[in-house]
């Protein structure tokens, strides 16, 4: 069963989101990765199209974070190939740095530069990597901070902000590089419950604007609301892919049924 069978493009459940164009942006083929004896990524085949929002679900230890990190080579892979916009991921050096500038990353623990102000966190990449003039970078950064709702915190240090604010700044930092895609590695898992929504709202807004996103998360609400496609991983393999509605209401594999049974009963 392919994804197309599940969601005929003609009667998509709603038209709030731009349809992904059939342009493949990120393609993983036959990707293998081991941590010692542990086979963390097995035979991964995944194509993410421009404008698509892919949510990666799965129990912990299933390899979903590793998959996310492999795409901008924070984790090197052992075998297989990953291409971005048709170009294979460079191994090291300047070419790799350039690629990373094109793929934003939002981490579970925010990872804002602790010694720099919020504003400097956002302008660092544009100024040093994209060679944007400082004044212009600052202007763009303020616009982004405005957009994620923390412009009034621009001169503070990350530690002075709440987790939700920090994560929104981290999203702004990724956006400042004008990336082709953004990877979210459990962006709300380290947040207090009352701060989860403020971050998800920003992410939903991004999805609506047509940003290509790969989101590793446990937020089923976000998956239902914003995902074009859900990927379910278990033991390093992609076990199931479907549109969110089909996945949540009619999971095919036993492992997905088991997983959903455990998390959706409460």
């Amino acid at each position: 069963m392919s994804v197309e069978d599940v969601t005929p493009v003609t009667d998509a459940p709603d038209d709030r989101f731009p349809e992904p164009t059939p342009d493949p942006l990120i393609v993983l083929s036959d990707v293998q990765k081991h941590f010692g004896d542990l086979h963390v990524l097995r035979d991964i085949e995944l194509t993410v199209h421009k404008g698509e929002v892919v949510v990666v679900l799965g129990p912990s230890g299933s390899g979903k974070s590793t998959l996310c990190r492999a795409i901008n080579r924070l984790e090197p892979i052992d075998e297989g190939q990953i291409t971005l916009d048709g170009e294979p991921l460079p191994l090291e050096g300047k070419a790799l740095a350039r690629l990373r500038a094109d793929v934003g990353m939002v981490f579970q623990s925010f990872n804002l530069f602790a010694h720099k102000t919020i504003l400097e966190n956002i302008t660092l990449g544009p100024i040093k990597v994209k060679k944007v003039k400082p004044a212009q970078a600052k202007e763009q950064a303020m616009a982004l901070l405005e957009r994620v709702g923390v412009a009034n915190q621009a001169d503070k240090l990350p530690a002075q902000l709440s987790g939700g604010q920090q994560q929104r700044v981290a999203i702004a930092r990724a956006l400042a590089m004008q990336p082709k895609a953004i990877l979210f590695d459990e962006p709300t898992s380290a947040l207090d419950p009352e701060m989860v929504n403020e971050v998800l709202d920003v992410m939903v807004a991004l999805a609506k604007e047509g940003m290509t996103m790969i989101v590793v998360t446990h937020e089923m609400g976000f998956a239902r609301k914003a995902a074009d496609r859900v990927i379910f991983m278990s033991d390093g393999q992609i076990v199931e892919e479907a549109d969110p509605e089909s996945f949540f209401t009619n999971p095919q594999s036993d492992r997905a049924k088991d997983f959903l049974g455990k998390i959706l009963t409460h």
Binding site: A97, L99, G104, M105, F107, N111, F113, K128, V129, A170
Partner: peptide, 12 residues
């Protein structure tokens, strides 16, 4: 994570 974030925005 600080080094990862630096690498992720494309800093060599």
């Amino acid at each position: 994570g600080q080094a990862e974030a630096a690498r992720a925005i494309g800093l060599p």
